[in-house]
Design a protein around this nucleic acid. Structure first.
Lengths: 334, 334
DNA sequence: TTGAAAGCGGTACCAA
DNA sequence: TTGGTACCGCTTTCAA
């Protein structure tokens, strides 16, 4: 591979000049510039990312820390980020933290050592102080699927509470009289969705705290929670699951209980992961603009990396109710 | 961050000596070694990966090139590789190539520039010469889900043909008399699975080329292929889908056709992605040891990186039939 | 056993 | 406008 010195030699100038044309910094006479460019082209020269990294420049690499790429929510985030990164010539390091603070810490250590340019993190466990410290050390950070109150941390998250309200209202509109909620683990997005559910159903005369069960954001959890709910309230006719995985779990449980969806029970999920359209019946859900969240996160991370002064706060993206068969009219049923 | 110079100063030795103890290279008196180690600990020193990369050493980074992380097969591969990489202090760069040769080429270019230590690639499109050239340039490469005949390329792939045979035989055992196959796109693994199907069903007196339709490895493809197959042969009672996604598509089509699975038609998929257990009925499938494939790929990539001389050939991993409801006895049905 | 010093391939400051 | 050169932090001869 050609080096900057090869280029300088061929162009008959110093390496300093070559560096200037590469970085468009300082003055370079147009003629010289062109000679250098020609030499670069002739040698098929590409500046070594590693060398410029060592010299204090960017490494054109960012890291994405997520709990687990096996969770179907994250491939969509990862893809959006990678697409956007790629467009701006960044490369993405993938880190699965399993929501383990120790693992997170270790990754961050390694990433700093590798002088990556920035981090996008989706973590239920990380707390503001840790991120603020990273920022203090000069590492740009953007969070996704998480908010940090009034801390100056840029984060992209959807409007969970409003989405949950939409889901609950939809079930009511579809005629459900007794609506249960399968909540997620005690993390921010799950709590917000629970709140939205309570906003709408909490005042109903038929409301009962027993209509809520926790499902841990997993299929198994949603399955177990549904059995639990129906054991307590056999007359539930609507379920708002805190995410699509739990909605699928609910679907399986209802199938086993001999209930028909949507005739006997209607289901609404949250997220709109691909899975929601893969099962039968397809699941009505509150669509998070996941791709957009990833895109925006990466876009803004680049701004931070470039030193742009942008507001560091929580950005709420709108959600959208996607009506499918699981909440359809009974007549819709094949 | 402390540098090697800080350590050498504190330990009262030269940087060369510190470097020796870091790399366990050359002679270092035990006493000196301990003094250096102590200094390293005191300063919480960690060698800069970037500096040693520039100095010609490893960058402790490998790249994983896959078609698309949104394809549910790849998160499992990625996770296995990342786990294993992490265990050996490697970091993984994720690249989505979309099976676009141009994109692949560009990625490889960038990765070489970043001096990554090795590449694990899953690509339908890449050809042996390109990989061989990479090897010649000193970049260790391991392929997954792909074989390259007798070329000296290390690759991990499952025993597709035998797995397909198992699937077909299973359907026959379960009493199916007319077994169709939904094939994948014209890529190696799909072709091998098709072969396995023909091995078993091709000689049947009821066999007919019209019993095969292509489904492009996607849900939609499987759905369309199934409708097509039943239009030709309404009496099909068994379907072997080339992968689980297409099996799910078949499931949806059959649901729409008013056929009951497994009573009227039994289905077997391939891969055993998580989705296979998420749908109702759960899908019988030929389980690929995906995690193991990823693990082995990474393990061997590290060996290559460390210069170990290992056989560079195709490694076939065994598959396993996982029987679930989609091929169950009709009596199994709830 | 140890240290001095020349790279690795850039960047950027200071002079010219 | 340009060039010389001292780093960035580590590895690796080569001598001592």
């Amino acid at each position: 591979m050609a080096t900057i010195r090869d280029v300088s030699r061929l162009a008959g100038v110093s390496v300093a000049t070559v560096s200037r044309v590469i970085n468009r910094s300082g003055y370079v006479k147009e003629e010289t510039r062109e000679a250098v460019l020609a030499a670069m082209r002739a040698l098929d020269y590409e500046p070594s990312v590693i060398a410029r990294g060592l010299a204090g420049k960017n490494t054109a690499t960012i890291a994405l820390i997520i709990p687990d790429i096996l969770n179907p929510f994250f491939p969509e985030v990862a893809r959006a980020i990678e697409d956007q990164a790629n467009k701006f010539n960044y490369t993405v390091i993938l880190c699965n933290s399993d929501n383990d603070p120790e693992k997170e810490r270790k990754y961050i250590q390694v990433l700093k050592n590798k002088r990556i340019d920035g981090i996008i993190i989706a973590s239920y466990t990380i707390e503001a102080p840790q991120i603020l410290e990273l920022q203090r050390e000069g590492v740009p950070v953007v969070a996704v699927d998480r908010a940090f109150g009034s801390h100056p941390i840029l984060s992209f998250i959807c409007n969970n509470r409003e989405g949950a309200r939409m889901a609950a209202r939809h079930l009511i509109e579809r005629g459900c009289r007794k609506i249960a909620h399968i909540s997620g683990p005690p993390v921010m997005s799950a709590k917000e969705r629970y709140q939205g559910y309570v906003d709408v159903c909490g005042s109903e005369s038929r409301f009962d705290p027993g209509l809520v069960a926790e499902g841990n954001f997993t299929i198994e959890g949603g399955y177990a929670a549904t059995l639990e709910l129906f054991a307590r309230h056999p007359d539930i006719d609507g379920i708002f699951a805190g995410n699509d995985l739990m909605a699928v779990g609910a679907l399986k449980a209802l199938y086993q209980l001999g209930k028909s969806v949507p005739r006997d029970v209607k289901i609404v999920g949250f997220d709109d992961i691909a899975l929601a359209r893969m099962v039968v019946p397809e699941i009505t859900t509150v669509r998070q603009p996941v791709y957009e969240i990833g895109r925006q996160a990466m876009k803004h991370l680049i701004k931070l990396i470039n030193g742009e002064k942008i507001g560091q706060k929580t950005m709420r993206l709108d959600v959208e109710l996607v009506v499918r068969r699981s909440s359809g009219e009974a007549a819709d049923r094949v």
